[in-house]
Design a protein around this nucleic acid. Structure first.
Length: 273
DNA sequence: AAGGTTACCTGCCCGC
DNA sequence: TGCGGGCAGGTAACCT
């Protein structure tokens, strides 16, 4: 489901729901694994802890407590929702965070590609899911020069490279397609054949697309909802994603779809080269 | 070392 | 109506 804008949207929704002033009575696990085993000590660590802040790093949600960090990745189909009763558990509900005031946050994930982990405070950089991550795309560290340098020895398609979380985090299949379209760069271009000027445009457009999508509350295709149950609406702004056979909004050429590394890749063959 | 492929899952949609 | 195949917003782990 979620790329950076969706995770950011969920984070903001969770902050509003929790209000950051609830003591947590319990964290209940309904199964011992998602994609990977869930560390069994998490409920013990979390007992009676207060959530002091919720952050996002890459596509991960971070629930900070005074004693450690609960890490949640939504995979493709993960969602968090608020629910009054903790007994009314539905199919694919895997984790229940019981808030102090008898409300609950429920993690649902039909495909179970999500991740749940625990990390000591100030140890995120050593965590196995975090140690290799590249810079946040909305931070200064991520620049055209940086990207040029990262791409120097890479002959892979540029689309694959900007989706590589070691290079830059948060960009997934939808936003990669949209950024490349706005930058008039073909997803098939070898990364090491792209100029600094093109990278300047690409970095600018990655920032623009992600920011616009955050403003729109993310993209709701199939089942994505915000933590408060609202739909995102950035999907209405897609220029190329899932637009195969439709006319390009710039030149009227039909949008094409090719498979790169097993992922659908939509682009305008005339505008993007 | 980079790049490609597979694997992990369920649900939905399509064509036969 | 039922079944098989293909596809879906991600990414670690494996092979070459």
């Amino acid at each position: 489901m979620p790329e950076l804008p969706e995770v950011e949207t969920v984070k903001e929704g969770l902050k509003k729901i929790i209000g950051l002033d609830n003591s947590i009575s319990k964290l209940l696990l309904k199964r011992d694994n998602l994609r990977f085993p869930i560390p069994p000590e998490i409920p013990k660590k979390f007992k009676n802890q207060k959530i002091v802040s919720i952050e996002r790093r890459a596509k991960y949600l971070l629930f900070y407590t005074p004693v450690g960090i609960l890490i949640s990745h939504l995979g493709m189909t993960g969602t968090w929702r608020e629910q009054k009763s903790s007994t009314d558990v539905q199919l694919h509900d895997h984790v229940i965070l019981q808030l102090g005031d008898h409300r609950n946050l429920i993690y649902r994930d039909p495909r179970r590609f999500g991740i749940l982990d625990w990390c000591e405070l100030d140890a995120l950089d050593q965590n196995k899911y975090f140690h290799h991550l590249g810079p946040e795309p909305l931070k200064k560290e991520f620049s055209a020069k940086y990207l040029l340098d990262k791409c120097k020895r890479r002959s892979a398609f540029i689309k694959n490279v900007i989706m590589d979380q070691k290079v830059v985090v948060g960009v997934g299949n939808i936003y990669a397609a949209e950024c490349l379209f706005l930058s008039k760069i073909s997803p098939l271009r070898p990364a090491n054949e792209i100029s600094l000027d093109e990278f300047k445009l690409l970095v600018k457009n990655i920032r623009k697309v992600l920011k616009d999508a955050i403003k729109a509350g993310g993209s709701s295709i199939s089942d994505f909802k915000q933590a408060e149950g609202d739909m995102g609406y950035f999907q209405h702004k897609f220029k190329v994603y899932a637009k195969e056979g439709k006319e390009c909004s710039v030149c009227k050429t039909k949008i094409e779809n090719i498979v790169l590394s097993g992922r659908s890749s939509f682009y305008c063959p005339k505008c993007q080269s």
